[in-house]
Each structure stands twice: as structure tokens, then as C-alpha cells.
């Protein structure tokens, strides 16, 4: 696999101050109740309000079972909230749409389609002509570092490669927001860091809005402009932390940066204080 070359510009942009603060996603007092098998109502999300600005990379961080994925599915339109509402660009979210592209931990590639077939699915569904869709898709496959694998089936790829295909498939229909549900959770540590780097490089190109669910503190701090910390039972927002670190970020520089280290240590301590058992790994 090739690592995508990053943009040569060393231009550093303090995200919070320079960006025009236009909200793309608004989550307004959302609660989600699930019925468990014992017929007791389980409050998965309680009164969540959150605004996400256009072009921001926002991570939702929390222990398993805090409802962070559910929150992502609500924004995706896959799940409707029990109460409250979510909006995209001022429009109420009523169902899934190509303006919000999901990337799942389970990859969810179509096993009966090749890499190219998977990536072409979105553009074809949007009515793009076959030749054009194919050209675009080949470009995307090259961008995620899988040139030469166009005619492979998902089963013939490693986990990391599958997730690259899934990312390309979603990028292919040009969503305005990427919804990433623990996308690197099923990968080994080495592959995970490579994909984090590559994701940042790809993101630097057009700075799409990203909502990124994870339970890894390092990952959240490394990638994000903003980390939304959640606590569980019921799922609530504990705190929203702005990560004021320069971009583009390089892993080898960042790990040595005391500011990065402080963010990680502070966030871990906050989770430890809240409860011993539910701290994120």
C-alpha cells in the first residue's frame, strides 16, 4: 500500500479562530430510548445538544455503551430519535441521504461487487454515466492507495484495505459530511496508525466536515479540532474540548508535542474521575 503524499504546504491554520462559524449539523435536545429484552426502557441518549461547524473534524469520544454510535446513526438518518431533532444545513433529518456518507467499523462492503464496483455504486446511483463514474472511481481508488486492486473482491483484501475501499466508496458520492463509526476499531495497531495518517492527508485536501466516533483518546486528539466527551448510562455530553494543535499534523512531531500530551492526559484523567469501570481504553 502506498501512503498518500500530503500537501506540501506548511501553512498552519488555527482552526477555531479563522473559520467562519457556519453550523452544518445541529443536534437539538435529542434523547433515545431503547426497549431491552427484559422490557425495561434503556435511556441510551439523554438530552444531547451539539452544533457542528462546517469543515470541522469532530470526534465523539466515550466508553462503550455511551450511545456515541447511536448519536452518529441519528445524524445519518438511520435511526430516528425518541425525542428532539437533528438538522443538516437547517433541514430536519428524516432519513439517510447522499449529503451524509457513513463509514462503518464493519466496512459493510458489498461482497458481490469488486473494489471498483463498490466505489462506483454511489455515483451510478446518483445518475453519473458509467464511463465517468468509472474514471472518478479509479482516481479515488488510487487516492486511497489501492491502485491495482480495482478488480479484487473485498474478501481478497486485508482489513485495512477494506476500510480504504469503504472510505473511497463513501467519498465517491461527494457527501458534505463524513460519518465515521469507529472506522479503525477492527484494525491492528500498526494498520490503524497508517490509516489515521492517510485519513488526515485525504481530509486536508478538501476539509470536509467529519463526525468521528471513537473510544480511543489518542485517536480523537490526534485527528480532531474538537472532542466531544460522553459519559454513559445515560449517554450525556460531559464536556466539549477544542483541540488547538497546528495542522497539517504529523504523527512523529505531534507525539513529542507537550500540548498534545497534555490533551491526552487531561482527557484520560477526566474519564478516570467520572468512573473507574467505564473509562475508555
Amino acid at each position: 500500500m502506498k501512503v498518500v503524499p500530503s500537501r506540501s504546504s506548511e501553512w498552519v491554520r488555527p482552526v477555531a479562530s479563522q473559520k467562519p462559524a457556519s453550523a452544518i449539523i445541529e443536534i437539538d435536545r435529542v434523547s433515545q430510548v431503547f426497549q431491552t429484552s427484559t422490557r425495561k426502557d434503556h435511556l441510551a441518549l439523554s438530552d444531547i445538544s451539539l452544533t457542528i461547524e462546517e469543515g470541522a473534524f469532530v470526534s465523539i469520544l466515550g466508553p462503550s455503551g455511551c450511545g456515541k454510535s447511536t448519536l452518529l446513526y441519528i445524524v445519518g438518518g438511520f435511526v430516528s430519535p425518541t425525542s428532539g431533532a437533528a438538522k443538516i444545513k437547517g433541514q430536519a433529518i428524516t432519513g439517510p441521504g447522499p449529503d451524509r456518507g457513513p463509514v462503518f467499523q464493519e466496512f459493510a462492503l458489498f461482497p458481490w461487487k469488486t473494489v471498483l464496483g463498490n466505489v462506483m455504486y454511489g455515483p451510478r446511483q446518483q445518475g453519473v454515466r458509467a464511463t465517468e463514474a468509472e474514471a472518478q472511481s479509479r482516481g479515488l481508488i488510487e487516492m486511497v492507495g489501492l491502485k491495482g486492486y480495482e478488480n479484487f473482491y473485498p474478501k481478497e483484501l486485508s482489513g485495512g484495505m477494506k476500510q480504504r475501499v469503504a472510505l473511497a466508496r463513501t467519498l465517491a458520492y461527494h457527501p458534505e459530511v463524513l460519518l465515521m463509526d469507529e472506522p479503525f476499531g477492527a484494525l491492528d495497531a500498526h494498520t490503524r496508525t497508517r490509516l489515521q495518517n492517510d485519513l488526515l492527508n485525504i481530509w486536508e485536501r478538501d476539509r470536509k466536515t467529519v463526525l468521528f466516533v471513537t473510544h480511543s483518546v489518542d485517536e480523537a486528539v490526534f485527528l480532531s479540532d474538537k472532542v466531544v466527551m460522553m459519559s454513559k448510562s445515560p449517554g450525556r455530553i460531559r464536556q466539549v474540548i477544542d483541540i488547538d494543535l497546528p495542522r497539517p499534523r504529523r504523527r512523529n512531531e505531534l507525539l513529542l508535542d507537550p500540548r498534545y500530551q497534555k490533551y491526552v492526559v487531561d482527557i484520560e484523567r477526566m474519564f478516570d474521575e467520572s468512573d473507574e469501570t467505564g473509562s475508555p481504553s
Binding site: F78, G95, G97, P98, E106, Q126, T170
Partner: peptide, 14 residues
């Protein structure tokens, strides 16, 4: 059928 296959297709505009 894996729910997330269906979600992926719906998000792509199916």
C-alpha cells in the same frame, strides 16, 4: 442481511 449494507446503500441514494 447485515443492516449496515442496507444503510450504506441508502446513504448512497438508493
Amino acid at each position: 442481511v447485515e443492516q449496515k449494507l442496507i444503510w450504506s446503500a441508502m446513504a448512497a441514494g438508493t
